[in-house]
Amino acid sequence: MVRESFQEQLNNLRNDILLMGKLVETAIETAVTALKRQDLDLAEKVVMDDEKIDRLELDIERRCLSLLALQQPMARDLRFIGTALKINTDLERMGDYASNIAKVVLSLGEEPLIKPLVDLPRMAELAQKMVRENLAAYVNQDRDMALKAAMHDHDINILYHQVFNELLAFMTRDAANIKQATYLLFIARYLERIGDHATNLSEWIVYMITGERLELNES
């Protein structure tokens, strides 16, 4: 095997992308758990942990750029590093949204919720599933798995519109609901955006595997 040190750096890069993905998945899960339990300490932790994701993003980006400069990668190596650069950014954004959700939880405080949470946790579950399946597709070079991951975005979008209409009804019914309903709407919006970024992951992972650029996001 030639280019051993290069290969080792690629392997380390892959492991850190996976780590980043796991951190993001955990951040989404924890943020929504904090919401369900209205656990402010847990929400605080998500915000704090986002710094870890941000630092990792910068580190991954720096390494990708130096691999491009120093190794002049071609073909699958080029696609691998290009994909790492792109999904690195998507993952970091997803982490930001999880952190934003946690910040909304902090704003909501301990004020009783106007309705039991059903659809928001379902959206979060789907978003986590998208991350998980994409990571599996990434590691196993599994194009079908990446496509499968992207399919859940459709369900997230349906849930988003459902939540939107429901919260709108709450606001129309009683102006006192507006503040909290708006907060919950923000959370729905963040989860919907996470789904879009997770779809980008699928697109880039397919590119990494085969070189084809698909448009998987719903317009």
Binding site: V2, R3, M74, A75, R79, G211
Partner: peptide
């Protein structure tokens, strides 16, 4: 195409420096 997504594995192995 050759340098971003070659079709043949032998091309891939050569241009990524993993030949032989």
């Amino acid at each position: 195409n050759i340098f971003t997504a070659p079709r043949d594995k032998r091309t891939e192995d050569y241009i990524t420096g993993r030949f032989g």
